[in-house]
């Protein structure tokens, strides 16, 4: 397979799309870990939601 004389445009398009998608994945995973860590810290500090299940209050 050859990409011909316009290979630069094709490679740039795929590279940019891959970078943006990778950025979205990193953002989603990092945000999840951050929110879990903050929630964990708050629960260690004794904070519980009123609607939290009883089992998780112990």
């Amino acid at each position: 397979m050859t990409l011909g004389q316009h290979a630069t445009f094709i490679i740039a398009a795929y590279a940019i799309a891959a970078t943006v998608v990778a950025g979205l994945i990193v953002w989603v995973v990092a945000d999840y870990r951050r929110q879990r860590a903050i929630l964990h810290d708050l629960e260690i500090a004794g904070m519980k939601r009123r609607s939290a299940p009883q089992a998780s209050r112990s």
Binding site: V28, D31, Q35, R36, I38, L39, L42, R49
Partner: peptide
């Protein structure tokens, strides 16, 4: 992202 947003709102509430 929806899962993260629910967790973010729980953080805000706490």
């Amino acid at each position: 992202a929806m899962r993260n947003e629910i967790l973010r709102r729980r953080v805000r509430t706490l």
